[in-house]
Design a protein around this nucleic acid. Structure first.
Lengths: 214, 214
DNA sequence: GCGCCCTGTTGGCACCGTGTCAATAAGCGC
DNA sequence: GCGCTTATTGACACGGTGCCAACAGGGCGC
């Protein structure tokens, strides 16, 4: 009667084990704040000794960085097939796409965005900033503002700021339930349209008072 | 030659001691993230035994809550003397006031806002939410949207969302230096104007399809 | 002025979570 | 089956936290 059907130790390939632990960590950090999740919890969840977590990820903060990176990495699948139509259409489609993706991964996305740096940690801030960066660039091409090489930095700043609006608005919808999806959609499209049509042209114009016309 | 000018122990009134410790904590948490500030640091900064910190504030998190509460509490002095003029004027004045106050207390304000809950902590989130609430209400009266009793919740949601834009935009200016104050001012005024004039009327209209006209 | 008592203040204790490392055994090749 | 590589473990030390009984500052009554 072989009771020991499961050997207490099972060897996995490093990549597999690492991925399994990371998956468990993502789940736990998604439902509880940073300080309330111990590496022991992660290890228990993965059915593994606590030391192994440190072996694969180093410090707890490093594990958390990986987790946040996974959480904010959005499936960059589509978005390549919507640049047709005028500005309003593209803006509308972009907002729709954004609301779709955040509502689908709402819990983990909320956790990642809410966890703005476990109290101002520099490294976490960096990871969030990188994600903002790619999102902003993607948004720039979506609304067709790829040129303007010399103002690229100003534009990125504007779009990153708009990202803050998108984040807080989505939170009002998904977390607080204070707004409906339609209201959020309306707010985000109208605002983005205003920024692109009114704010950005004025910024581009103001930046070169040194070279009037010619 | 009385060398012992300073008795190693000095008794202060509870309020005074508590306030002194809190002031030191505000300074430390303003320049370093939550995890990097130990209660020992706070005690040393205040020239006091570590146990006293726990005696007055309980757990470290409770002290942090007090600190955040202090950081986000804005001097509610003025703002009562700007409701003259049309909408554009009032919006402009409100944004100017906001930018003034955040730039004056930039470091502590940034620390508080960036510290979105030390990794999603519920209590810290609550304190931030309360601050957002009063800021939103203040903004509502500033732009003259006090009526509309039945839509108050929707309006507050909108304004809170706009607060996210204000936050991220100010961060682009103060922390990243990616935008100038003029650019921030332009973005915030134009956007707020759009929200009040275009988005909100539509929301108010859409909410009552059950009572068409009469 | 001298003591007493109230209470602000201290130092040390026990506990928990983390990071590290040598020891262990799983599983593949022979 | 044997041995070797290495994934995995358990125990150790360390630092930070919360708690508590003991201490002493300084105001009060005498």
């Amino acid at each position: 009667m072989s009771v020991e059907t499961a050997p207490r130790r099972r060897r996995l390939e490093p990549d597999a084990r690492r991925g399994q632990i990371l998956a468990c960590a993502v789940r736990l950090f998604g439902e509880r704040p940073y300080a309330d999740v111990s590496t022991t919890d992660v290890a228990r969840e993965a059915g593994v000794a606590r030391g192994l977590v440190n072996h694969y990820f180093g410090a707890k903060k490093d594990l958390y960085l990986e987790v946040v990176r996974v959480m904010v990495t959005i499936p960059e699948v589509a978005l390549e097939r919507l640049p047709k139509g005028d500005l309003r259409t593209r803006v509308d489609a972009s907002v729709t796409w954004f609301l779709d993706v955040v509502s689908r991964h709402s819990t983990s996305w909320l956790a990642a965005v809410t966890a703005r740096g476990m109290g101002g940690d520099a490294d976490v801030e960096r990871v969030l900033a990188e994600a903002e960066e790619v999102a902003a660039d993607r948004m720039l091409v979506a609304v067709g503002l790829t040129g303007e090489a010399q103002h690229r930095e100003d534009l990125r700043g504007m779009v990153r700021a708009y990202g803050g609006l998108a984040t807080s608005t989505a939170r009002e919808w998904l977390q607080r339930g204070a707004l409906t999806r339609d209201q959020v959609h309306l707010l985000l499209t109208t605002t983005l349209l205003t920024i692109v049509e009114q704010v950005i042209p004025q910024v581009l114009a103001d930046r070169e008072p040194t070279r009037p016309e010619r």
